[in-house]
Design a protein around this nucleic acid. Structure first.
Lengths: 332, 332
DNA sequence: TGTAATTTTGCAACCGGTTGCAAAATGAGT
DNA sequence: ACTCATTTTGCAACCGGTTGCAAAATTACA
């Protein structure tokens, strides 16, 4: 079906190597030769087989893009940014949906079978060990949105979730709330754990503030809504730090639905600043996570690793900032 | 770095063919041989190189997943379903983000270079010719969410957008609205055009109803919001059929923001029934598009084409139905 | 136990490219 | 016109697998 190198070579009356060389840049070909080959190639509609060449060059330009967050709208933005960024560098994303899998073994095996040049793990819930498994298998890996570490075993790009927890706590304190809650995502998620740690550590310095906590069972609207309905029934706190915008929006819906008002009855602060949080009918006060920079930086790091696989693992943490909108009361 | 067939063969003291055969099912290998090879393979941590084998078998199990809808949250659901469905069949999605490209040439070339076994075009905006380009290049293709046709040139799976337009029109009429509008997505999108056609055809049978129309410049929240703000300034209709839920939600935000109420001042009916439309703080009346079935069916069709590439192109259309929620007035 | 039918195995060529090396062609310099 | 240095080209081996074919091994049957 497809036209091969050999056919082009025959048509142009030259050797196969000559054809190969005109299609690999940096190779030595005379102008005359190049023209002859390009003519024949065009006539036959030839384009080189990337996979065949990968056999000898050892590079496929395939990048595994592994994620398990297909229910959080922010990940549509993330996928958009990743696919574009990778494409711009001539890399091709091979998308892997982990669903509920947390064992890296299958993904590692599969992605090695496809000889991916590298892997981006885009997940705020998977433990560091997940990405580590790729490194152990000799595959360059970047963990985006992963847990920050001062001694990372793989490249990590993301935010300081502990600090975000503290920020949220400080913000609630600053606004004069005296009875607050932490409503996290799934308890096993590293991001939830870290945000919890930060939030609680800051609160423990303020013993006069009453603090409660609980966890939704997923980073999703429904989970946030369910959890908030439960909280409302048991007598809610004055304000909550929700571990993610999509949880906040679920919580918001529960509050509205119970005939209560946000921020008058219950205040909310989220984390992510996803597009939807800006929507005027949501207008969520939240902590901005710079996903654009995180993605760009992850791709940069990946590209750097492709050049130097031995590169020393590094952690890149981007600062977050509070975006004041309408779901917390003005300072009292 | 990676362990090869040859090394396993040497370790097991057998021929390379023997190793190859133990890893391809249906091949003739004795039990004794299989055990010997598997032992050696396990010891060395061997797993076959899928791309190398694709050279001779002619199958990569790679499927190009091409889309340009990275700003419509419903596509996160679509990607989730596609990636899972493909993975379940041992197929691997190679994701292509078209951004604003509408010329198939680049994608066709790139996906052929990677020898994909097939391509799924997941887009409600691209014209039939886009998918056709893959077929012309000899690549099996399914156009999901594409324009229905009675004489399709490629497999198309989706809904009857013209009929959806009619449904929306009938619903607005049934509810007694006498002054209605069509607020479409981008004018060039096939889905917009078809929904417009259906809507108008039904309306033309009801000359006493006043009808207007306009188009947002993207299928996105912001575009819907902008367009509705413009409409509100110029004196809006009583109710609108928005060409997509995400547009409706943008419109909703514009309405709320202008101090008006939906459905009391302006009614809305959307199309898609995405997860978010169910959220209680949105509660959008809409036309349900059965995306789960569309995706499942697309994958089925793709799998069938892999077995029989000459398969005659077919159109699979799934029925839609109205989901009554809170953004249209009860019948008057 | 001998022979024929059947299964298992290895050889070698092939898939579609790349690349080191040496031979051929070109260009520079006198 | 004749060296010598430099560039361009083709040969052949290789990347990591698969597969048709014939030889070797096993099994069936008399």
């Amino acid at each position: 079906m497809a036209v091969t190198l050999k056919e082009v070579a025959e048509r142009a009356g030259v050797s196969r190597s000559a054809v190969s060389r005109t299609f690999t840049d940096g190779a030595s070909v005379s102008d005359k030769m190049r023209r002859k080959v390009e003519k024949a190639a065009k006539e036959l509609g030839y384009s080189p087989n990337a996979l065949a060449s990968s056999l000898t060059t050892g590079r496929t330009k395939l990048i595994g893009l592994v994620s398990n967050n297909f229910h959080n709208p922010i990940f549509l933005e993330v996928f958009d940014l990743f696919t574009r960024g990778l494409q711009d560098r001539g890399l091709r994303p091979l998308l892997v949906n982990l669903t509920d899998e947390t064992d890296p073994e299958n993904s590692v095996r599969m992605l090695r079978q496809y000889s991916v040049d590298g892997v981006v793990v885009a997940s705020s819930t998977l433990p560091p060990g997940f990405a580590k498994a790729f490194r152990d298998a000799g595959v360059p890996v970047v963990h985006s949105f992963g847990r920050a570490s001062s001694a990372p075993q793989v490249h990590v790009v993301g935010i300081d979730n502990v600090e975000c927890g503290r920020m949220a706590a400080r913000e609630l304190i600053r606004r004069g709330y005296t009875h607050v809650g932490f409503m996290g995502g799934p308890e096993g998620a590293t991001s939830t754990q870290d945000r919890y740690t930060g939030f609680m550590s800051e609160m423990s310095a303020n013993p006069d503030i009453k603090v409660s906590y609980s966890f939704a069972d997923a980073y999703s609207f429904d989970a946030g809504r369910r959890e908030m309905l439960r909280l409302l029934k048991n007598g809610p706190s004055q304000a909550y730090f929700c571990g993610d915008d999509v949880l906040s929006i679920g919580a918001l819906s529960a509050i509205d639905d119970s005939g209560l008002s946000c921020p008058d009855d219950v205040g909310l602060i989220g984390l992510n600043d996803m597009e939807m949080s800006r929507w005027e009918n949501i207008d969520l006060t939240t902590i901005h996570q710079p996903i654009r920079q995180i993605v760009t930086s992850s791709i940069e790091l990946m590209a750097a690793m492709l050049d130097d696989p031995e590169r020393y693992p590094e952690t890149r943490i981007f600062p977050c900032s509070i975006v004041e909108r309408g779901t917390l009361k003005a300072e009292v």
